[in-house]
Design a protein around this nucleic acid. Structure first.
Lengths: 124, 124
DNA sequence: GTTACATATGATTACATGTTCATATGTATA
DNA sequence: TATACATATGAACATGTAATCATATGTAAC
């Protein structure tokens, strides 16, 4: 956590500015690269769809195949498959084949942690 | 609110079934209400935009006003204001007025935690 | 009051994306 | 091989939404 206090009262009046330029500059320097923040947004975008969240939550404690999910959430097989492709490419789920079925599950504890954090915020 | 209901004839090997119905039924019962999962998705949707993530990250340690953010991220004042409205209504940022300016900051530690978790996943 | 600055908002536009439908691929068994 | 089951994929459509522009509201100093 930050030990620095940022106060809006101007300690210096530099021309057209109002003393905020130092802060803006400082933040600009500590801001991660755009590419990283873009990837971060893309990650959250994957969580930001009702269907995908339902799928992820269903897999919280269980390994499920496409048909399980489709029946469980009353979705078409195609829709589930499309969404699982997105979840796979974001490394949010892993999978294994067993015979004709493919079983999906959450990729790691990060995924559970993110969902749990969000839940806490929503349920407050 | 209530979702679909499947016939609880989960008596194992029934024709085309493969004994997965018990699991589907179990997951269905432990799944939160659709409304909650919808809210959860809506929350992540707010994090799922590059501009908003940049704004949130800029406020990680700093209190900033609209103009600060606009200059910092090279965005229009209007765009920043629109996004801040979304962040406000999701309770992700708080604000206070001081004179003509309004200073925004992250609402609580949940927000920082969610961003940090996402960062860890992205930077892996 | 007027002027200047700071922020908010409504409407329009352009782009992104989730679902559906049809079809293809993959796997196991007879 | 053929057949059935399980999953994946491509295209088209419809909805959602972020940026822009113009304008409105709010605040402070004169």
């Amino acid at each position: 956590m930050s030990t620095e206090r940022i106060t809006p009262d101007a300690t210096a009046e530099n021309g057209s500015g109002n003393g905020r330029e130092d802060i803006v500059h400082k933040v600009m320097e500590q801001q991660p690269d755009d590419e990283i923040l873009y990837d971060l947004a893309e990650l959250f975008k994957v969580f930001g769809d009702s269907t995908r969240i339902k799928i992820l939550y269903a897999m919280f404690d269980n390994e499920l195949c496409v048909n399980d999910i489709a029946k469980l959430l009353n979705l078409s097989q195609s829709s589930v498959s499309h969404q699982l492709r997105i979840l796979k490419s974001s490394k949010l789920v892993k999978f294994r084949r067993d015979g004709k079925s493919i079983y999906y599950s959450l990729d790691d504890e990060h995924v559970r942690a993110i969902i749990s954090m969000g839940m806490e915020h929503v349920e407050e």
